[in-house]
Amino acid sequence: MSRIQLNVNGNIHSADADNDTTLLSVLRDQLDLTGTKYGCGEGQCGACTVLIDGKSQRSCVTRAGTVVGRQITTIEGLAKGDRLHPMQQAFLDEQAMQCAYCTPGMIMSAVSLLNKKPNPSVTEIADFMEGNVCRCGTHPRIVAAIQRAAKAVKEAGL
C-alpha cells in the first residue's frame, strides 16, 4: 500500500493505493465522491466514466496509480458553484433520465465527446456513446440532450 496524490476536480487529495486499486474505488470509498458509479467492473457500461485531462475514461478499469499528476474530473466537479454545466442542464431540460444511475457517466462521456467534436451528428453521438448503458431506455432523450448542450455551448461561446 502506498500513498498517492491525485488531482480531482481541481483539488489535490491523498489516497492509499495498491497496484490493483482502481480509480473508481479511490473516488468512491476514500474521497467520498459517490457520483461516479459502479455498473459492471469491466469497462462495459460507462457508469464509472470520469474525465482524465478532458477525455472520458472508465474509472473501474483505471488503476489509481496511473493517473497521478493528471487532471481528474468527476460529475461533482462539473458545475461551477450553483451554475450547472450546459450538459447537466440539457439532461434536465430533456428529462433524459429515469432512475438516473447511468446519468453521471452519460454526462461525463457526452462532455468528452463535445470536447473532441463540438457539433456531433446523431450517428456520431450514438457511436461515441455506444459504451454507455442506460437500462431504462432513455437513449433518444440523451441524444437530444447532447445536441441541445452542443448548441448551448456554441451559443454561449464556452
Binding site: 457520483g35 458509479k37 460529475i75 462539473l78 433520465m97 438516473a100 444511475y101 446519468t103
Partner: peptide, 21 residues
C-alpha cells in the same frame, strides 16, 4: 412535471443504496 429532484441526479449528489455510508 419534471423529475422533482432531478438536479440531485445530474450533479451526482443523490445517494443510491450502493453509495450509502
Amino acid at each position: 412535471l419534471p423529475k422533482v429532484d432531478g438536479r440531485d441526479f445530474v450533479t451526482g449528489k443523490h445517494r443510491y443504496p450502493y453509495d450509502q455510508k
